[in-house]
């Protein structure tokens, strides 16, 4: 079996999420990596993709119509290449989720999004109901179209492989959509939902002043977003849009540092899917410590500044 993986690049690197998708794809068969972009970007990306161990062949699709990875031309391109591939795979990123379902429809396939585990070539585990249940689904489609949840597969290394690169003759056109602009927020503070690291505070901070003065230096050091428990928001320590939890935002960063948060189930519901959880709390009995990967029992007013300094 051979698997086609749509690979994304970012700042001259293969995106980590795409390297996770490659890892997942290697469990299904030989991996062909498809890189798209304008001629120069595709060339650069192809060189990078060829070095990722596990990639057997790189398909380089360079053309102006592909410059912004818009769904319409990229889906058409995938369909034109779909041929004998058993699986078509991408990471569950904004691009993957935009492109793959469209390609699947054109191939008359029901896509399987957010794959967390591969049981066999036809059977996959994916979250439903916001991750409150995990469904194992079996596809009867001849070809499978999957997006991969990056946090469940270790990214393939960036270096170590040496795949061949084939240029694809791009004939697809885009008559319906046009790229206008992109906007990357200038604030240093990332959005809560997309942040890689979140520093989050609770009642233990005691006041709005402490909330800022204790958490901000740590968040700055880590390039982290700042979150808050409902109690902290209700007590006026933090703005409402910082709230993480059942009634606030649901987040799943790589690192979640809970400072002075007891960890009521309502809060856990909003962050339990974080990859690594650190709890800093003076109460050794706090429920947060029951779910944390690393717990530090101590006075947050001493520990947090010390941590910021140590980083």
């Amino acid at each position: 079996m051979t698997v086609l993986v749509l690979v994304e690049t970012e700042a001259g690197q293969i995106r980590q999420a795409s390297r996770s998708a490659i890892t997942a794809a290697t469990k299904l068969g030989d991996v062909h990596a498809l890189v798209v972009g304008n001629a120069a970007d595709a060339e650069a990306a192809a060189t990078l993709a060829a070095k990722v161990p596990g990639v057997a062949k790189v398909l380089k699709a360079g053309a102006d119509v592909l410059a912004h990875e818009l769904a319409e031309p990229v889906a058409d391109l995938i369909v034109s290449l779909a041929g004998d591939y058993s699986h078509i795979v991408a990471a569950s990123t904004a691009v993957g989720k935009n492109v793959l379902p469209r390609a699947a429809a054109l191939l008359d396939v029901q896509p399987i999004p957010d794959v967390m585990a591969i049981v066999d070539a036809d059977t996959f585990v994916r979250p439903i109901y916001a991750g409150n249940a995990l469904a194992t689904v079996k596809s009867s489609d001849a070809k499978k179209v999957l997006t991969i949840r990056a946090t469940n597969f270790d990214p393939a290394p960036a270096e170590g492989g040496s795949a061949s690169v084939d240029a694809v003759n791009v004939t697809v056109q885009d008559t319906v959509s046009r790229f206008v602009s992109e906007h990357t927020p200038t604030s240093d503070r990332p959005e809560l939902e997309s942040a890689r690291v979140i520093v989050s505070g609770g009642r233990g901070l005691g006041s709005a002043e402490n909330f800022q003065s204790v958490l901000t230096p740590l968040a700055d050091k880590l390039g982290a977003a700042i979150g808050a428990s409902r109690v902290a928001v209700d007590s006026g320590y933090a703005e409402n849009d910082c709230q993480v939890g059942q009634t606030g935002k649901i987040v799943a960063p790589e690192l979640y540092i809970a400072v002075g948060i007891s960890g009521a189930i309502q809060h856990l519901a909003g962050m339990k899917d974080s990859k690594v959880i650190v709890a800093i709390n003076k109460d050794a009995e706090a429920p947060m410590l029951q779910v944390a990967d690393y717990a530090l029992v101590g006075d947050l007013f001493e520990v947090v500044p010390e941590l910021a300094k140590a980083l």
């Binding site: 995990l134 194992t136 689904v137 489609d141 410590l289 779910v291 717990a295």
Partner: peptide, 24 residues
């Protein structure tokens, strides 16, 4: 339908990790 649901399970609950003794 192209997909059949083989089974549905609750996500595994997180287990407590380790207590660290210091910031370092």
């Amino acid at each position: 339908r192209r997909l059949t649901t083989v089974s549905v399970a609750e996500p595994p609950t997180r287990k407590a990790g380790i207590k660290v003794g210091s910031v370092a």
